[in-house]
Amino acid sequence: MARPVTMFTGQWADMPLEELAKTMAGFGYDGLELACWGDHMDVFKAAEDMDYCKKQRAILDKYGLKLFAISNHLAGQLTCDPNDDSRSDGFAPADCAGDADKKREWAIEAMKNSARTAKNLGLDVVNGFTGSPIWHMLYSFPPVSDQMIDDGFKYFAEIWNPILDVFDECGVKFALEVHPTEIAFDILTAKRALEAVGNREAFGFNFDPSHLHWQMVDPVKFIQEFPDRIYHVHMKDAALQLDGRTGILASHLNFGQPMRGWDFRSLGHGGVDFEEIIRALNVIGYEGPLSVEWEDSGMDRLHGAQEACDFVKNVDFKPSGVAFDAAFDEK
């Protein structure tokens, strides 16, 4: 095994951290990537209270688990989204519900505290989302001008540069999970997002192939495009289910419904070519964790989590330290 295998706890936030740590250690995971919701990590506490940080770390230590990154997707989503309906009310404290500006103000502080938390925990990466002020303009009707899109990236930079200033102060990097509904959802928008913040080193990517695969973007091309910006890696699979009747936009059907044009799958049960991804990660010298983000509406999650750990360990390998034909030169 070349890299540590971790589990992202976002889809497990209903389980107390102690119970989850014990379970994942039993499955063979090397560590956890803690979500900043549930009881897994409170960034408002951890940014100021070292005893709280030690307490959360002690839970992982008890079961021999390591901590490489934290993730604050929910707060990050509120920073740039319009926040003008109730879908995201549950992402922020109850007193922010229905108030777009209040949700945004809370979220910006939460993301700054995520950097402070990472520093207090001795980490150098925070994963998450940014939201997007222009995702609702994806299909250009009613007509969308170039200026509207330019303004969207400018707005993102205005919100995120002050957040990234705190990341710089803390010596921590932010890794955006490139994903539909974010300011960057494919290769071209990822390039625009980097340019919008002046290509500053504090901003990079949490590479997750599943979100690219169903858009029919080659995940390996993404790694090749951004070799110095892959700050963290999620391992997640997806399957295209296009049969001439289903559509890539999923027809307003929720995950797990059979008529969707695509869906997430447990590792090894979709269409992502993970061997080629490992080879590409070897080329760029990525040595960080491979973090399972488990999502599959058609499979028991405990079964899937254990199987996924074994899958990642089996698919991962170190690059060669010697040319295969070097022995031919031996005298």
Rank of each mutant, 00 (worst) to 15 (best):
P319N: 00
S210R: 12
G204V: 06
L253E: 05
F264H: 10
E293S: 06
I149A: 11
A193T: 04
R3L: 02
D208R: 08
D325F: 10
L17P: 00
I278L: 04
G198H: 12
A46M: 05
M299A: 15
D81F: 13
L67F: 04
E201K: 14
E33A: 11
L290W: 04
L34N: 11
V126D: 01
N199T: 14
G256D: 03
E19V: 10
R279C: 01
K119C: 00
L121V: 10
C309G: 01
D49V: 05
P142Y: 04
G76A: 08
K112C: 10
A196N: 11
C53Y: 09
P133A: 04
P319K: 13
D237Q: 09
H252F: 14
I278Q: 12
W12I: 00
I230W: 01
G268F: 07
R229M: 01
F153K: 05
H211F: 04
L60V: 05
A327F: 15
A2M: 11
A238Y: 01
P162K: 07
L249E: 03
E18C: 10
I59V: 15
F205R: 11
F156T: 13
K154G: 08
E276H: 11
E287I: 05
P4E: 07
P143N: 04
A75M: 03
V312S: 03
M137Y: 06
S132W: 09
V315S: 02
Y155I: 00
G304P: 14
G288I: 02
F328E: 06
Y286R: 13
Y139V: 14
P180Q: 04
A75L: 02
T79H: 05
I284L: 05
Q215T: 12
P219D: 00
H136Y: 09
D165I: 11
L302R: 12
E19R: 14
H73L: 02
Q241E: 05
I108N: 11
D49T: 03
H179T: 00
D14E: 06
D42V: 03
D42E: 06
L74V: 01
V178T: 14
I159N: 10
L34W: 15
P162D: 01
D243N: 15
A190F: 11
A75N: 02
E307M: 12
M148W: 02
A239R: 15
I248F: 06
